[in-house]
Design a protein around this nucleic acid. Sequence first.
DNA 1: TTGTATGCGTTATCAC
DNA 2: GTGATAACGCATACAA
Lengths: 342, 342
Amino acid sequence: MPAASSPNATIRQVAELAGVSLMTVSRAVKQPQQLAPETLERVRAAMDEVGYVPNMAAVSLRLAQTRLVAAIVPTLATHVFDAMLAKLTAELAREGYEVLIGQTQYQPGREVDLIRTTLGRRPDGILLAGSVRDKAVRSMLSASGVPVIEAGDLVRNHLDMAVGMSNEKIGAAACSYLAALGYRRLAVFSGNDDRAQRRNRAFAREAQRRGMPVPHVVEVPPPTSHALGRELMAQLLARGPQVDAIYCGSDMAAAGVLTESRERGIAVPRDIAVMGTGDTDFAAALFPALTSVRIDGARIGEVAAGMFLDRFAGRPLPRRAVDVGFTIVQRESTAAPAATAP
Amino acid sequence: MPAASSPNATIRQVAELAGVSLMTVSRAVKQPQQLAPETLERVRAAMDEVGYVPNMAAVSLRLAQTRLVAAIVPTLATHVFDAMLAKLTAELAREGYEVLIGQTQYQPGREVDLIRTTLGRRPDGILLAGSVRDKAVRSMLSASGVPVIEAGDLVRNHLDMAVGMSNEKIGAAACSYLAALGYRRLAVFSGNDDRAQRRNRAFAREAQRRGMPVPHVVEVPPPTSHALGRELMAQLLARGPQVDAIYCGSDMAAAGVLTESRERGIAVPRDIAVMGTGDTDFAAALFPALTSVRIDGARIGEVAAGMFLDRFAGRPLPRRAVDVGFTIVQRESTAAPAATAP
DNA sequence: TTGTATGCGTTATCAC
DNA sequence: GTGATAACGCATACAA
């Protein structure tokens, strides 16, 4: 039983207790096979007795590596990010790395501060949800020399490494999907962050390409919510154009559209189709079940972890940018319009 | 413009560039007012030029404090934890603390390893979602001398500090709530983790106290899901006892119960009432909107942050245990049974 | 107002 | 197989 264990025991206390030098204790942790079995046992007993855990601040300082990976996300309250972080954390943990999570809460100014603070921790790698647009941030990051992964938004001029999917392709695919089902008067509800805007522009371009009416696009500051979806839907009905399908930048907003429609006696998808983004866990639980663009957060996290580990080990990277794609999960909220009547 | 900034510049490089000593640079960061304005400006220019950010590993080692708070949660994919972590992170960030998040993924064995690894980072504080039951973990933590907050589960014998609510009270309240609405044949679906089990036992005790039939309790390994809720509901209908209300340990499971009921033509709440736990953001978006036990994760995070900051600053704690309570948010899934017919 | 010496806890290196 | 030494980057204490 660990008896008198003192707070934050150091390698020195263990050494004195075991009657060996500092290096012997260090080796007992890092290269146990180098020690005589009897010595090893004595050192281990001493470590247990004082509850010794190596101080990573000292290790980091000495080795110039922290075994820390920083991940910066807008919010934790989004399924894609959760799944990504969970997988990233789990995969990196196998190799002894920990993940330091920072949240910007969608405040652009916060990102610079956060990255500066984060760089102070000298992480071995930094993952950023989304692409880095801010000039200052870009130069800070590249100057730091830290491996950087931009995740979830595959842009051409990524800083270092990237994994994710093209938001432009998502926008175009969403539009094509609705068009193929016969919907023509489209609306888009989404956040006004960079990714969403690029998605929406691609959506509109695709509509134009197909000779459809210009989509009615409404962009608001994120995060989007159920209440927001309801409100936007109410506004659309009150004074918006006639539409037969709505593409939402988040599933929560889409859920709000479903609720508001139901309360007003508008049948989905008969009167109007609704589609979300993210394929959140609750998408299938809504009524009607929500069609959504599925983004595999876990896959993103897995690929990102692999890239980091390759890089840390000095292995050559197969690719510096990985497209994990996306899929559209069709559910009840966008069933095809009735076939031409007999 | 930061020109030739080198990776991980040190205080020495800045000093040489500015033609001052190391201490002058250090003071430029920590006590700028002590420097001659002209010197300060020169140092700042040098810092910008090389992109200097202090190495926290060195600072931590020197000061024996890391400005790091570790938070250990079962998963990020739960609204209560998200909200708690978001608030905790935001509040601590104001005072220059960062939050290191660990996830156990509900694997009990993982908790010990995770805490050991975490202790290596010498966090200034540790927050644990849930109470600490494991003997080894308890002694590791108390031996480390780190301030510990057990969050979200208010037990009597907390290790150090605690904030949350009584799961026993939640169970009893859920039962009382359903009983008051006239439901008598109750079922419970939940995870089989410690917190859930204590909640369920209290639920059953309350039913007994009220002279109601013994509730049909089904406990499964977490995490619970929509699919799981559907399956449990299907099983209940196939071979379970007749029930008129179901209390679920999570909103996702409750959502599954709603879906399965709808598919089978069972009307909620007319034929059966459904109630969840957590008041997740999507609870209001379900159909029918889900009655749920609301747990204010943000409030928990806020109180926890306050406790940590008081402790770090050496201020006396008003209370070592704070009950943030809970509320039952009534929605459509548990409307009262029809009044006695005329 | 600015500089020098010292040590935080650990490990690479070299010596025995 | 084990030990002594130096150094990682920074801030406290003290000196100038």
